[in-house]
């Protein structure tokens, strides 16, 4: 009985993440369009796209790894969603919060890019592979300040568990973005790369690489990748809220906080040109890493 309840809870979490993530995607398209002085699609355009993709039949395939690639990505998104606490105190959405800690999360989050890389690799499209190499290189870039911020948090509170970090914030009444500001700055700078909006969008580079890794995928494959991307965006935003903004007590607060946070990479991206890969790597190893170091020093000495 408990197992069934757990599975139901997990499904509820996935549906929530899917809905919120897809809506955010649509809203971002709208906002971008308005900034560009266009009308833009309606905010529910992503749902329409999803239904359309689900209805399509696929005619050709390039082999088994192309099928498994999107499944790998889904594993990464859903398992990290199971690990990240959605609300303070768990409730319906407790899932596997007890099962993994931050370091597990860091590693399961890169399972997705690897699956994407394998799936895209088998199609033989050189644009996909070029996109993948850029994506992986850029990942090495932004992981450094991101990990520094996480290490600073772990050191400061002697725990690697996300639930514990949320609990500490609620007990002390201050959000981590105020009590360890440098970690927050480093993490937000890393977040710019994580969401791959401009100036860090050379991975997909729509005009140059024909969207890179996802080219050659249509129908159900693209649907899986798209929904995985939406869920993953929700996971990352919720994680930031959990770690730096004290978590959320109910879904409305969660949506408000994540949306506010999401606007940072989006609004920064809309007005930015594009970096080359090595430029973006060097960007992440510059100021963000400096703030990461400050964060660690702050955590150790203050």
């Amino acid at each position: 009985m408990e197992l069934i309840l757990n599975i139901l809870g997990a499904i509820a979490t996935i549906v929530l993440a899917f809905t919120v993530g897809m809506s955010y995607g649509g809203i971002v398209r709208k906002i971008t369009a308005r900034v560009h002085n266009r009308m833009g699609p309606p905010w529910y355009q992503n749902f329409i796209d999803a239904f359309k993709l689900a209805g399509k039949t696929t005619a050709i395939n390039h082999g088994i790894m192309q099928h498994f690639g999107p499944a790998f990505i889904m594993v990464s998104s859903i398992v990290s969603l199971m690990i990240v606490p959605v609300l303070n105190g768990g409730g319906w959405f407790e899932n596997l919060n007890f099962g993994g800690d931050l370091i597990f999360l860091l590693y399961i989050m890169v399972f997705g890019p690897l699956g994407m890389a394998l799936g895209a690799g088998q199609t033989g499209n050189p644009n996909s592979a070029i996109g993948i190499t850029r994506g992986l290189s850029q990942m090495v870039g932004f992981e450094i300040p991101w990990v520094m911020a996480l290490v600073a948090l772990m050191v400061q509170f002697d725990t690697t568990s996300i639930v514990d970090i949320m609990r500490i914030q609620n007990e002390s009444g201050t959000w981590m973005m105020f009590s360890s500001p440098f970690a927050f700055i480093a993490a937000v700078m890393a977040m710019l790369g994580m969401f791959r909006y401009s100036p860090f969008d050379i991975v997909g580079a729509p005009t140059e690489l024909a969207s890179g890794p996802v080219s050659e995928n249509g129908g159900k494959y693209l649907l899986t990748m798209m929904s995985s991307g939406s869920i993953f965006a929700f996971v990352k935003l919720t994680l930031y809220v959990d770690l730096f903004m004290g978590g959320a007590d109910n879904l409305i607060i969660l949506v408000l906080k994540t949306f506010a946070l999401y606007m940072i990479p989006v609004l920064y991206g809309i007005v930015s040109p594009r970096y080359r890969t090595e430029q973006s790597i060097r960007f992440f190893w510059g100021w963000p890493t400096f703030f990461g170091l400050l964060a660690i020093l702050y955590a150790v000495f203050v």
Partner: peptide, 14 residues
């Protein structure tokens, strides 16, 4: 329902 195609049968920038 799908047929296998070679890796040359791809859309390269259209």
């Amino acid at each position: 329902h799908t047929r296998y195609v070679t890796t040359k049968d791809i859309s390269s920038s259209g």
